[in-house]
Design a protein around this nucleic acid. Structure first.
Length: 420
DNA sequence: TCTGGGGTCCTAGGACCC
DNA sequence: TCTGGGGTCCTAGGACCC
């Protein structure tokens, strides 16, 4: 059997770990620049705050109901996620970390009769040791486990664990689940299926395979088979290397000014370099884009992008930033208020197999410089050493007005907490 | 004033090859 | 009247996920 474990309202729950006074109180967590709602505690969901709601439009609701609002604190969430994953992998033969708040577990070797007890034990341990509540769905395939997980969440009397281990339970579960809630059915497919009269997951499994293949590609077909109990998705025990690495940002306010854009794009490219070095990859292609805010006057919109093949594979922040700035020069046009920009590195190849080309190669001195920079910055001084082209970094901070302390990863923050 | 970020996979169609 | 056949590779766009 396969389990999918996920953390309930993960970001909101993380904020609560160090704020026990917020137990039972509504919490929302906002995206970068405090833009949108990206997590809601169970209590907050009751106030009809939709996912991705723009924060400024819901300000009065937050105030009126006393909802606790947080800026996102990825240092905290990432660290708590690691702790949860460690416990889960201790308690199962194989683990696939699927996202920051979810993992698939292979429960082979645990007798069928003990599955429920085992899952309850995991739940208790994660709650006790990290303070995060989880839900677990168990079934013969990943997709059915996802279905079981939805049911575990829906019915409190299940105590956060549901197991689909018979044909009866499989059908019952599928009949309960709206087709749009299936893993792999998004907005588009949902609309089309509803039009056809397919409302729940069970009805979906009755569709002919040819129709599904034709209209939803092999992805849809795999979904169909998984729901019938046939395994189409294996475990991925080691996380595959990323095929693209991107840094893109909306600005806290629009800018008309090339210097600001250059500074930002240089930072994005440097951070791409950092991430490339971390996974041992070089980039061969870089894409830079620049656009106005899509919420502004349609007549004053501008969106441009440029993709270039790099002369040679590199992960040097200096080289990447230099490319990005030259590309930005070409993209920039006076007179527009820009709201977002980004750098995407692609065509990634392993640094270990870097080929010397006939005419040019990445400057070998950069390797040493980047190593030194990374080593220093890792020692609890992120961003302490950076490129001059990154600027002073003060002008363009994200808006993060409700940021909680990095309780588990920053000494300074902890001292602040104690003092206050 | 203020609306997130980072990925993956699949397919159709164009360009090209012999 | 009538203009081949069989491939590969790349890219943009769509759909989806968290």
């Amino acid at each position: 059997m396969i389990a999918i474990v996920d953390c309930n309202s993960f970001y909101a729950s993380c904020e609560r770990v160090f704020r026990p006074d917020l137990d039972g109180k509504p919490i929302v967590v906002l995206s970068n620049n405090d833009g949108c709602v990206i997590a809601r505690s169970a209590e907050a969901k009751k106030y009809q705050i939709p996912m991705a709601a723009p924060a400024f439009k819901f300000e009065h609701i937050f105030k009126h109901y006393g909802i606790n609002v947080f800026s996102s604190n990825y240092a905290l969430y990432g660290d708590l996620s690691n702790r949860v994953m460690n416990i889960l992998s201790d308690m199962s033969p194989e683990t696939e970390v699927y996202s920051i708040d979810e993992a698939f577990l292979n429960l082979d070797g645990i007798p069928d009769g003990d599955l429920r007890d085992h899952c309850l034990k995991m739940k208790k341990r994660v709650r006790q040791w990290v303070g995060i509540p989880i839900s677990t769905g168990v079934a013969p395939t990943k997709t059915l486990a996802k279905v079981a997980n939805k049911i575990a969440k829906k019915y409190p009397q299940l105590n956060g664990v549901h197991i689909i281990d018979s044909e009866d339970l499989r059908i019952k579960a599928l009949k309960f689940l709206p087709v749009g809630d299936l893993w792999g059915i998004g907005r588009r497919h949902k609309e089309r299926l509803i039009k056809l009269g397919v409302k729940n997951a069970y009805q979906f499994t009755l569709l002919p395979e040819e129709w599904v293949k034709k209209n939803m590609t092999v992805v849809g077909l795999r979904l169909l088979k998984e729901l019938k109990g046939q395994r189409m998705h294996d475990f991925e025990l080691v996380a595959p290397k990323k095929k693209a690495i991107a840094i893109t940002r909306s600005f806290p306010k629009t800018t008309f000014d090339i210097e600001t854009l250059q500074e930002n794009i240089s930072i994005y490219a440097s951070v791409c370099g950092e991430k490339l070095r971390k996974q041992g990859s070089d980039a061969n292609v870089m894409q830079v884009f620049l656009r106005t805010s899509r919420f502004k006057d349609p007549a004053e919109q501008r969106a441009v992008q440029l993709t270039v093949d790099l002369e040679y594979p590199t992960n040097s922040s200096m080289e990447l930033a230099s490319y990005a700035q030259r590309m930005m020069d070409r993209l920039y046009k006076d007179g527009y208020g820009y709201g977002k920009a980004g750098v995407i590195t692609m065509g990634l190849t392993p640094t270990a197999n870097r080929q010397a080309t006939m005419f040019s190669e990445s400057n070998p001195k950069h390797v040493v410089a980047m190593e030194a920079m990374d080593r220093y910055n890792r020692k609890d001084a992120a961003g302490a050493i950076r490129l001059a082209s990154n600027g002073t970094g003060k002008r363009w901070r994200m808006r993060q007005e409700k940021l909680s302390p990095r309780y588990t990863t920053r000494i300074d923050d902890c001292i602040t907490v104690k003092a206050s």
